[in-house]
């Protein structure tokens, strides 16, 4: 149908019409601000990040070491049992190379988000973070990595207290 229509009736709108207020719209910017209580498990996790350590919880029901830590085991539905420090080294489970920023701008240095299985935690447990000190073409699944921490005085008890994870091989080599 529409392919047969050569001329559309009406007046086309351009961005200028919107900018100059010829098309009426109503704008509203919501003020939605939150301060989530971290609670027992994540509160401790963040405090340990500030101290430059990663901490997990052990569940004796399934004998898993859960990272990020939680006060309950989602498999066993029971409270977890004890705090366990884990390493700040791990293995890349999967990664992506982001050439496009959220506002669709092209990135000359792509971001490298990765899921890292952390040494000392149970299989499938780890941290979602960024890779650094590595060229995108050199990143591979199974790569061994280590956390690069911020300086003590810069840490604030946040996931960003780790700047990124870098390949261990480069550190050794």
């Amino acid at each position: 149908m529409s392919v047969n229509i050569k001329e559309w009736p009406g007046t086309a709108l351009g961005s200028k019409d919107l900018e100059e207020g010829r098309v009426l719209t109503v704008r509203h910017r919501v003020r939605a601000e939150y301060a989530w209580d971290a609670g027992v498990a994540i509160g401790r996790y963040l405090r340990e990040l500030k101290a430059g350590r990663l901490i997990a919880r052990r569940c004796r029901g399934c004998d898993r070491i859960l990272l990020p830590p939680r006060m309950f085991c989602e498999e066993c539905f029971r409270p977890t049992d004890e705090w366990v420090y884990v390493q700040d080294t791990g293995t890349v489970n999967t990664f992506s190379v982001c050439y496009v920023r959220w506002d669709v701008a092209r990135l000359t240095e792509p971001q490298l988000p990765a899921v890292i299985h952390v040494d000392g935690a149970s299989p499938g447990m780890g941290i979602m973070h960024l890779l650094g000190e590595v060229r995108p073409e050199d990143v591979r699944i199974g790569m061994r990595v280590k956390a690069v921490w911020k300086q003590v005085e810069e840490r604030e008890g946040a996931i960003t207290d780790i700047r990124y994870w870098k390949p261990i091989a480069e550190e050794v080599g």
Binding site: D37, G39, A41, I42, G43, R70, M71, F72
Partner: peptide, 11 residues
């Protein structure tokens, strides 16, 4: 309830 997260409250 500053001592617990919403998840801990639910558990």
């Amino acid at each position: 309830t500053p001592g617990v997260s919403y998840k801990e409250l639910m558990f």
